[in-house]
Design a protein around this nucleic acid. Structure first.
Lengths: 192, 192
DNA sequence: CCTTACCATGAAGGACGTACATAATTACGA
DNA sequence: TCGTAATTATGTACGTCCTTCATGGTAAGG
């Protein structure tokens, strides 16, 4: 499991993964008129790597306390709301299926960190709400998590963090727009 | 599953997710002497979002052709090598357990896209090698994937792609250094 | 030679995520 | 008003990724 992390640096000083580049060169490779394809492939792989790193750190901090990654996501969102959030809204906010949120809420409810209350305005709907125990859990989680996050982003300036967030969300926005277009294409015919 | 994607923009024009910020404000929140913590939390959440976007696009392109995300990762790496790569090396390169790579190789071998050959230099080791069918699969996958990647990173300049890759890998490098330090700490006593 | 370390894999399990079907409820149109 | 369609949460059933621990085969160094 020990990963010999030999990233290299391009002439401009930016990091890259030589193994990824070797793999992608044979894939996106030969066309010199299209250097952007190689770059996008490398960037896509880098996102994957970064995500795994974040998840691993998160696991160290939360999994040891009995809450998994997806459940933590929900709990943090619930912590930002007092009256509760419906299952569907949570699913849309997190970009996952509502069935998934139902399952995560089951585990949170079993642990006593959240509970379901009926939505007074819609009897089909269920509001998920954080419990005092949930808030206490988050409170205990706060400081170690803060330190871990700071360590993860060690060496990042505030400007770099902002740029990073912006690039990540632009990626997500592009994907979403694309997915919408694809689903509309498959629903309708062809030309507008 | 339709996600109403209402990201907002900070005064400087950079994207942020208001729901994440609301959740994180209550968590990393109040301390005005430490604005970086909120930023790091937002950045961490953004990585997660971006990763899911990439995975979803990848699923559209490959899962429909019978190869899952992890297996595709392996196949691309194998495509960059002719004589083959050992299971352990693949695991270290991808940052996952070797057991995991064994399982993914099983599926690739069942599909005929890769095969195992004995390592002439070490009879314990097994070299994973791509087959002609594997290369043909990749060839067929190349053009749709290229288009999808270009669409995903639409609006990204070459410089932004480089910066993005650099930031992602710096994150991964930090995490790795941190994990090493933690494991050493738990192995040894305390002070150096 | 023999102990130690390494390699791939079997076994078992956890977590995330999906699709489809269903019952309850709401919304809307004739 | 009544009936049809849409929405909400959830049951059922899967698939994939990833992990840890245990095991048999092999290499390396004393």
């Amino acid at each position: 499991m020990k990963d010999v992390h030999n990233y290299d640096r391009d002439p401009d000083g930016s990091l890259y993964d030589p193994r990824v580049r070797a793999a992608m060169a044979g894939f996106a490779g030969g066309d010199p008129a299209d250097p952007l394809t190689l770059l996008t492939c490398e960037a896509g792989a880098a996102v994957r790597t970064a995500y795994h790193s974040v998840e691993r750190m998160r696991a160290h901090g939360s999994q040891g306390r009995g809450v998994s990654a997806g459940a933590l996501d929900l709990l943090l969102r619930l912590n930002g709301s007092d009256q509760g959030i419906s299952i569907g809204d949570l699913a849309r906010a997190a970009g996952v299926s509502s069935r998934n949120v139902t399952g995560l809420m089951d585990t949170l409810e079993n642990d006593g960190l959240a509970l379901r209350v009926p939505d007074p305005g819609d009897r089909r709907s269920v509001l998920a709400r954080i419990t005092p125990a949930g808030r206490a859990w988050i409170e205990a989680f706060r400081e170690p998590s803060r330190l871990a996050m700071r360590a993860m982003f060690q060496g990042f300036s505030a400007e770099e963090l902002v740029v990073f967030r912006d690039l990540c969300l632009r990626l997500a926005a592009n994907q979403h727009q694309l997915a919408d277009r694809l689903s509309h294409l498959s629903q309708n015919g062809d030309q507008p």
